[in-house]
Design a protein around this nucleic acid. Structure first.
Lengths: 136, 136
DNA sequence: GTAGATGCAAAGTATTTGCGACAAG
DNA sequence: CTTGTCGCAAATACTTTGCATCTAC
């Protein structure tokens, strides 16, 4: 079975180069939210000739094609993750940087309502919670 | 009556230089969310000798002192606004870039609950809604 | 008087781009 | 074949910093 990302590329008419296949594979297998540097490192282990410029170009392309989601969490570098059906938001441990994904439909609904209240249709949103682990 | 920002500086033991007073004044009078460039332009009209390095240093200092809030909305540059009692989130018009401030206590409460559910104490959060204006 | 602030220009980061060589459809 | 991609290095955009000078307290 081909990777979901590859399937999406074909659907969107995105040319499937070797480099893109590798980046797709690495992203599919990543359960975290790598930034471009991290992604570049992982990709380099498979093909050391891939340049970081290609990684930047590819994540941008994948983002525009709805294949990856880009996040600008606090701390500078953009982070990416594969975009699946299930939308989710993030809870970030401010001490360790650990990222927990969560879904809360109640909040989602309320967001739509807020946008509507101001005469807007919600097209996107970003919700990040920053917390510290409680003892015990 | 002195500016709220100046009062806060004194409370926090932040030295009140002429440059900081000007930046404080400009931010107090701004009803939008200027980025550093915009702020620098406004500040330059009052004192053309202020350097952009000072503006960067000052907004960072003010942010750390709880005087300004920094936002990394989509589109690269960080934007700042004065931090008052009333916390609020942002609804951003994706076509015009217009920013609407809103408060929704129900969402705030749910956020706390979500964090607790995962064993975290919420210390900060970011909620941005992106929308398009509805016809009618 | 002294610790801390400023201006300037140089240095960092993160990301983008021009260009000739190359590969997918 | 032809259009789009790649690798490289140079360029850009935003932000930070070293240092000598200056200023608030």
């Amino acid at each position: 079975m081909p990777l979901t990302i590859e399937k999406k590329c074909i659907e969107k008419g995105v040319k499937l180069t070797d480099q893109r296949k590798i980046i797709a594979k690495v992203m599919s297998e990543s359960n975290d939210h790598p930034n471009v540097d991290e992604l570049y490192n992982r990709v380099s282990k498979i093909d050391s000739k891939i340049s970081i410029a290609t990684v930047y170009r590819t994540v941008k392309l994948f983002e525009e094609s709805g294949i990856l989601a880009k996040h600008d969490f606090k701390g500078g570098k953009a982070r990416y993750e594969e975009l699946n059906e299930g939308h989710h938001d993030h809870l970030i441990d401010v001490k360790t940087g650990e990222i927990i994904e969560f879904v809360d439909n109640e909040i989602e609904e309320l967001q739509k309502k807020v946008a509507e209240k101001y005469g807007y249709e919600l097209v996107d949103h970003k919700l990040e919670l920053y917390g510290v682990k409680k003892k015990s």
